[in-house]
Design a protein around this nucleic acid. Structure first.
Lengths: 323, 323
DNA sequence: CGTTCGCATACTCATATGAGCACCTCGATA
DNA sequence: TATCGAGGTGCTCATATGAGTATGCGAACG
């Protein structure tokens, strides 16, 4: 049915073989028999059909995009894993943020349940962490202790719900839990030092330092950020923080686009584990859900704080485009 | 990276596995190792990805359409083979016919060269057969003899070139050649019988009867048909032939849409092999190139005259739609 | 002419894959 | 509560496939 190499008829043979193999599911040997070729020739021609793209094999499911983004994040930034959530479109940006948070939290909780980290697990707080905590299945792991990574008590009227987060992480895994009874950011470095030297708080931070896993949200410096709204950072300071180029915060510590502490004096007033200590942990999962999280996600990656990122599709794309 | 069966996360796993297997070319065992699954599970999930069409494997080359048409012709009509040519678009319909003829002739010649029929080969004549003859490569086969299947001498001013056709078939294969020195259609059944009983002609027709392969064009009853223009079929008879529903002719014998001899009296005036004898041969290739050949192609198929059809794309489609 | 090179071929052998089977787990049902 | 059945699992074993290698054929070259 065919003749000269390189002639049009040649392509016909490739097409015919490809059809027999991929559509009719004949074996290469059968095809060879039928067409008077050795099975080796058929195999080689099949290879050729593949790289002359006469045959196309593609993963067509919409989720393939996401898996692709994950692969690229892992590859580009040397992460241990990346989780990119499929975020359904939503009308208002607030509703979209809620959906994104839920989707990302679902992925993060699934990941944790599959990984089953043991020993001491450090957690931050925030809406995203709450969403994760609420999705942890009973018995998701058998950790020894769950410990808060940074301060949370707030003078504002926004409850941080850090208690529920810790309680859920602990009760679903059978671990004990340990909160930090202090604000995220206080009024002076001296006060911070005093708090951190308080035996109870110091003990908890030491425990956080010993944690081998950490799970934390990546925040942005919006006016409603619980960290800024704690009451110890006044409006002028908030404005200054933003004007200095703060991309967002990781466990209460604000970074610029390159992952450098943006305002060391403010950082000196922040209660909790240091980023250097955080970056030592084998498993450190940062979660970024919602619009505008690209910069802080990239900053955290650049600072080497993340080994695993969980985020939504648009954040992943932002990071890949700008990183 | 995944959790519950049937959940969205499930699809993620399929997608991930599909990517690793088809894009990264990892083995199923490697994938299993990496994802903590047995290689059997991976294989089964790959199957699922295939039939949930998360993975699509398709033959994308334009020629695939043609191969598909060929397969359907073979399948539907129980042919031994079908050759469908890719006909480039052309401005005028006459130019299109020329291109179609060339493309189909190329395929037919390739097919013959690959099949290498031996023994006695019967051929008809016409523009298409000439195009085939001109494309036979030197030494395409080692036949013993090439014999004309039906009469050709004509009173019209159109040369039939049957001599060149026979000569090319023979000289490229080392065979002897045997023409029929008589018109295609004569004025009366008595004259036909007389001719056929002439020793020289009878001998040739006997030889044609003994041929194991036959290659012939499928004609249409147009005014310029060499059969009709032979001068022994007058205009009134031509009109009558068409009004009786002649779809076209095979070796000078006109069939209706169902493959039945349309006008027995005319057939009795036709010089050459009978269709019954033709239908006995193991290899009988009919060639139909150009517009309007659908009906005669289908008629020949229905009459069981063809074991191999060579035609252009539109003819193939017509036959499949109407058959 | 004879030589050599390049490329396609057909082989052997190791590996990857698929079919069939026995088992197990879990939820539904009597 | 006991039993059953549908799915899912991992096995063995036969088969299909691919890597690597030696051979052969024809074209280009001296």
């Amino acid at each position: 049915m065919v003749a000269k190499r390189g002639s049009p008829g040649d392509v016909r043979l490739l097409v015919r073989i490809a059809q027999l193999y991929y559509r009719m599911h004949l074996s290469q040997a059968q095809i060879g028999e039928q067409l008077g070729l050795s099975r080796f020739a058929v195999g080689r021609l099949l290879d050729r059909a593949l790289d002359e793209s006469i045959v196309r094999i593609e993963v067509v499911h919409p989720a393939a995009r996401l898996v692709d983004l994950e692969d690229r994040l892992v590859e580009r930034f040397g992460l241990a894993a990346a989780l990119v959530a499929d975020v359904p479109a939503a009308a208002s940006s607030e509703a979209a943020d809620d959906l994104a948070r839920d989707a990302v939290a679902e992925l993060a909780a699934d990941f944790l349940a599959q990984r089953r980290p043991t020993g001491v697990i450090g957690v931050s707080w925030g809406r995203t962490m709450l969403a994760v905590a609420r999705r942890l299945p009973q018995g998701w792991t058998s950790a020894a202790a769950v410990v808060q990574l940074n301060g949370a008590a707030s003078r504002s009227n926004q409850p941080t719900r850090v208690g529920e987060i810790l309680e859920r992480f602990a009760s679903t895994s059978g671990a004990s839990f340990h909160g930090i009874a202090a604000p995220a950011i206080v009024g002076s470095a001296a006060l911070r030092d005093a708090l951190v030297n308080d035996p109870a708080i110091r003990e908890t931070i030491d425990l956080a330092r010993s944690a081998t896993s950490a799970v934390f949200g990546l925040g942005i410096p919006a006016a409603d950020s619980p960290h800024l709204a704690s009451g110890f950072v006044d409006e002028a300071e908030q404005a200054r923080l933003r004007s200095m180029g703060a991309a967002g915060d990781v466990i209460g510590r604000f970074l610029d686009d390159n992952g450098v502490i943006v305002w060391p004096e403010l950082d000196a007033r922040t209660v909790g584990l240091s980023l250097a200590d955080l970056a030592q942990k084998p498993l450190r999962m940062g979660i970024a859900a919602g619009a505008g999280r690209g910069p802080i996600a990239l900053a955290a990656i650049r600072a080497g704080i993340l080994s695993v990122i969980a985020c939504d599709e648009s954040t992943a794309e932002w990071v890949l485009v700008h990183g």
